[in-house]
Design a protein around this nucleic acid. Structure first.
Lengths: 337, 337
DNA sequence: CTGAAAGCGCTTACAG
DNA sequence: CTGAAAGCGCTTACAG
């Protein structure tokens, strides 16, 4: 089980050249079946492990893709992104690539420090999973490697991003509330925080417009400060009959707050979320929410990034992935007066 | 910003050799300060990025450490392990190493499939973060790379592991309950599931023994099946006045269950957890629990693994890291009758 | 079907 | 202080 067995060692034992061993182990043409089998068998027996670095050196490709997740999405949200990461690596492996996770800490984000895997050429490209600061986005955009933004986008038109169809998802789930008889519907989220929150707000607003419902700014509640840190949600004097929350975690916070004030969900007030992450099921009652299609998003991000590695001129733009509503028990039907 | 700038390119522009460039960029002896500065400046200007692979090839070291987390610790628990992972990488970076996260999926665990980073020599050693199946442990033990088990251990004496002092932590928090006047104390956890749960149970039991309290098997509740999947906790006819739970997540489940049955925590029944993870604060009321010293555990695991990379004969055995009790509001004092 | 030669981008002795 | 040579473990033409 020595770990320093090389193709040369195998070749020497068999009295052939390492070229032949390479061909045999890679199932390439030009080796008799008999010899090939002998080589493979011996490789196994000698505990040979392929040295991917040597190939990488030759080709100038590491066969690694860096996946950057900002630490700011700490706590539970990570469980969602970790899920995405896992799906990404699964897709990468199909193409002989490997994912390298880099959690971007706040300090590095502020100082615009790129991951060391970049400076040491340990990756061929980056998938950035989760919105970073404007400055950091710009910094990343200027590096010479292919990159794809996942789950957020930026004003720069020339970047490729894969995002949930936040606008349409929020539009649909708001429509659902309207169908259930709700006319006073609020929205919870910091409108200037991320593109997701904004787009979800606009989808919500479109539904109101379409149904000729009034957008009451007293019903737009802030959920986080400018650093993305959750704040205590301030409720208005008079409450609407339903709230569209920009994500499940915030919906969870809202339900807790309402429960403490002796409101019942959904009897007194209906609440819907977005993401269908752990918070959707943790919350009591379970949240009706928009499920994000992680599989499809990861699949797109991976196929885009690999195509860009092959041909850096490829461009995909902003690609939307539709979610679907998952119905639970956080919405009640309002009888029409 | 071409990414294919090499030391040779810099050398050619300056009319020196690449050996000199290498020395300058690595701050080694044998280059005049003037030339060194010129080289560094030009490297920067040409957008040079160091090719770590070339060095790795020479030395036969990848400068990567694989961190394996079993997928089974899915959902929220991941947030805890992700936290540990982040701390690990921070420590690794200080030594010029990089962490490569590998989430071990259930299928690979069952089929005893090792990560591709092993077969392709992309890592020099492994840290296994979280208990895997017996068979997988054995499989990993037989590979020729250094490894350290983190947050669990195995009967095999020859493996190095870093674990929380589960026994002592559970012992202390149970002592605390006794101090608060509790005499009927239950324990929640599957005693045959993981070493952590077992050791915490034994710490709890030691406290009972020491205080001459009776161990009532009706008060030992199961929380998960043999695959580690959480099950509905079955409460006994008569309840104790307090429960020691093997982890915060289970404590959270128990509190939810009790609340549904109209018991009040801590008024009717006290509950303590273990880990001090997100569940400790999510739960209403906040859980009194044992905080695991992630920083110290990660630090130990990293320094052990790096020493083992340098000298594969080094051995550290089973190393315990003490936790500390964090007091919140899930325990009430019982007046002595 | 098989192999000698060259090269990927560094670093490590060693020589000057 | 500076550099020519060799080598890390592969693969890719190319020749036989």
């Amino acid at each position: 089980m020595k770990s320093n067995v090389t193709m040369k060692d195998i070749a020497d034992k068999l009295g052939v050249s390492s070229v032949t061993v390479s061909k045999a182990l890679n199932d390439k043409e030009g080796v008799s079946d008999e010899l090939k089998n002998k080589i493979k068998y011996l490789a196994d027996e000698m505990g040979y492990r392929y040295n991917a670095m040597a190939k990488s050196m030759k080709e100038g490709l590491s066969y690694n893709i860096g996946v950057i997740i900002p630490e700011r999405y700490a706590g539970l949200a990570q469980s969602f992104y970790l899920n995405v990461y896992q799906t990404i690596t699964r897709h990468l492996e199909k193409s002989g690539y490997y994912g390298i996770l880099h959690i971007l800490n706040n300090e590095d984000e502020k100082n615009l420090t790129l991951p060391r895997i970049y400076y040491e050429k340990k990756v061929d490209a980056f998938i950035i999973l989760g919105q970073t600061s404007k400055n950091y986005i710009e910094k990343i955009q200027n590096i010479g490697l292919p990159k794809v933004f996942l789950d957020f986008y930026d004003e720069h038109a020339d970047i490729d991003s894969v995002i949930t169809d936040n606008f349409y998802g929020a539009y649909e789930i708001t429509n659902y509330l309207v169908q259930k008889g709700h006319c006073d519907i609020g929205y919870v989220g910091n409108l200037t925080s991320t593109s997701s929150i904004q787009d979800r707000f606009l989808g919500y607003y479109k539904s109101l417009l379409e149904h000729k419902l009034h957008l009451n700014y007293d019903y737009i509640l802030n959920d986080r400060d400018e650093n993305g840190v959750y704040i205590d949600i301030q409720l208005p004097e008079k409450l609407p009959t339903a709230f569209v929350c920009n994500c499940d975690q915030v919906a969870h916070n809202l339900v807790q707050k309402l429960t403490k004030l002796d409101y019942q969900v959904p009897e007194d007030i209906s609440v819907v979320g977005f993401d269908n992450d752990v918070y959707a099921t943790i919350t009591e009652p379970g949240l009706t929410t928009v499920e994000v299609d992680i599989e499809e998003m990861a699949h797109n991000a991976v196929s885009f990034i690999l195509e860009k590695v092959k041909d850096s001129n490829k461009s995909f733009g902003r690609v939307l992935v539709k979610g679907k509503i998952v119905y639970r028990n956080s919405v009640r039907e309002i009888k029409q007066g």
